[in-house]
Design a binder for these strands. Structure first.
Lengths: 116, 116
DNA sequence: ATAATAGTTCAATGACCATTGAATTATACT
DNA sequence: AGTATAATTCAATGGTCATTGAACTATTAT
């Protein structure tokens, strides 16, 4: 598992920091995976649904698959590899055990040595 | 532990989705907790540091404390109650085991019954 | 008092982006 | 062929927000 850079981490968080996108993921988790059903259950315009789903797909957070019998229908699902990678990074980033004590290389006691 | 609403969840993620803020948290985790040291270690203008730190403090992700001997210096630290609440929510939100199978209440087979 | 230091506040700028309505593409039905 | 449906693309709008430089506040040192 490659290390996640700050920019990549921020990018994932930004994409997930949108209420409609969070609710879309929630609905997909709940088993609502058809595009049109997602829009109806969230009362959002189809083009807006399309926009948010494409953002999530571009980030590989979601995957899409067309219906085999009727290619007009599209079903979305979670990409667990990406989600797993992201949650692992978040848990590592906020791991309390990695906290270091205050360096104290700064402050009034150190004005003479360390400041200018 | 109260349940976190979508808006609140999105708000936390949005605040954390900024590279400079992520690096600030990283530095504070590493023991660099003095305001001026944070600015120097990230090569950011003091007013920009101040801006990002205040955003993180307003969200209760960080706490600040003034130096007892010289009130000009300020030290920042992580608020672990908030971080713990947030990471718990993230892990619950992305918990693979809560995934439901596709409802299939939509699609070509159901056009007659469910679609208009 | 005056100067220096740490940090904040203010105003302006520019970029990004969610939202909306209209037009468009693609597929399936009659 | 023509119509209906699922979804996307396009253009315009408005709001949010990171960044910057300058002015300002608060505290300490000389």
């Amino acid at each position: 598992m490659e290390k996640m850079e700050t920019e990549e981490f921020a990018h994932y968080l930004k994409i997930l920091s949108e209420p409609n996108r969070i609710m879309l993921i929630e609905k997909i988790m709940d088993g609502v995976q058809c595009n049109c059903e997602l829009g109806k259950s969230l009362s959002l315009a189809p083009n807006l649904i399309s926009h948010h789903l494409s953002v999530l797909c571009d980030a590989n957070i979601l995957q899409s698959k067309r219906d085999e019998n009727d290619a007009r229908w599209i079903y979305y699902s979670i990409n667990f590899d990406v989600i797993s990678k992201l949650t692992k990074h978040i848990n590592g980033f906020f791991d309390v055990s990695r906290i270091q004590p205050c360096l104290n290389s700064c402050g009034p006691k150190f004005t003479g040595e360390n400041h200018k």
